[in-house]
Amino acid sequence: MMNRLDTLFKNTCKVMEVLLILIFALLVLDVLWQVFSRYLLNRSFSWTEEFARFSLIWLAILGAAYLSAKREHLSMDFLYQKFSSAKKKKVLLLIEVCVFLFALIVMVIGGFNLVYTTLDLEQLSGTLRIPLGYVYSIFPFSGLLMMCFSIYHIAKINSNQITE
């Protein structure tokens, strides 16, 4: 069971890595294109800026889920370092519960309601004319991923495979 979960986790991370690299590469090309079209072709395309902004949102939010998977969000372990290992385990579990709850309440429920509202109201973006709900959908989606990663980490902490 755990083995299969490990494989699933690894593969999910791989897919996210590929996505993040692609989004970042597109972002670079998009803004480069904006600069060159402005200076060399002397015209500007209004979609380049919007595309860049939306890509940044995806990069940041999907990246945040990836950081959750890798447990690489910025955190302060000043006090934590002084705890005994039994206490550390409890704290680690508590951290995952906190992440899980925030992901569930704000990112999944709040984010889904936001996506639902903007889709329901047919809000389109200014120039690309894509529904804003699609852009925002990365938010509840990443929240869902974060919840899964938290559960996975909790299992790992319980079986003492994560100790720090």
């Binding site: 890595e17 993040l20 690299i21 989004i23 970042f24 590469a25 940044l56 990069l59 940041a60 939010i61 999907l62 990246g63 945040a64 990836y66 950081l67 890798k70 690489e72 969000h73 910025l74």
Partner: peptide, 19 residues
């Protein structure tokens, strides 16, 4: 690709903090 991934992670740390 690996440079982009490392940068994506650093970016996400800062951006999620900004969020």
């Amino acid at each position: 690709p690996s440079v982009l991934l490392t940068s994506a992670k650093t970016t996400a740390v800062v951006m999620f903090l900004i969020c």
